[in-house]
Amino acid sequence: MNRHDHPAGSGRRGVNGAVLASILLLAGGSVLLGLGLDLGSGRAGPPPQPPAAMAVAAAPAPATAGSGEPVHHRRPAGARPGESIGRFLPASRPTRLEIGSIGLRSDTFVALHVQRDGTLSVPPNADTVGFYQAGPTPGQPGSAVLAAHVDTASGAEGVFYRLGAVRRGETIRVTRADGTVPVFTIDRVQAFSKSAFPTADVYHSDLTSAQIRLITCGGPLGPDGSYRNNIVVFAHLAST
């Protein structure tokens, strides 16, 4: 960034004020441009993204083709054969979400609902975790869905700012209103283009195991200023 090093070293008699001014302007401009481009809003950088190998733009092929029958039941990707996932828990709403590996802990939840366009609503601010309350609660059969913002338009970090940094094998702890604390093991973290969002994989998954999905935004910004991708964390119930 110190572009004036080289010119300043060539201390010839022909250097005049105009050249010096140009050097200073170039240097100052470069520094400010660098700050603007590299440091974003003055934070440590853009939110973490899943590894490139796990980031796909297109949705995987639908689980069922043709008539959609029969329904395929799958073991969660991270579950070992014969591994006990415990019995399902009765319904109880989440009261705390913790992911130790990224220092995430949140006690504030808001109910999400399906909007007229079919998509899930989002939390009203970046400090709360949304919970799709018409779906399973964490520990019930099927996928409990939690979603939160990665950031705000003004650059403040959202609850799920670091969600893209989680990795397979790490754990998610959910405390529920009934006092139980189901622990989920992460199977994968993946980025999907919003235009090719894997609806079935995220929302209509296998009901024979208790799973959880954490959703936020990621990837590059589109022309409308919103993120092009959703980052989704897939995890299965490991213990209760």
Partner: peptide
């Protein structure tokens, strides 16, 4: 109930590098 479909708008966009237009313009 009708199940959700499609992606979610869970970001403001302020966390990416592209937002700090002031510094970029001055620079």
């Amino acid at each position: 109930k009708v199940a959700p479909a499609g992606g979610m708008n869970t970001g403001g966009g302020g966390g990416t590098g592209g937002s700090n237009q002031g510094l970029i313009v001055i620079g």
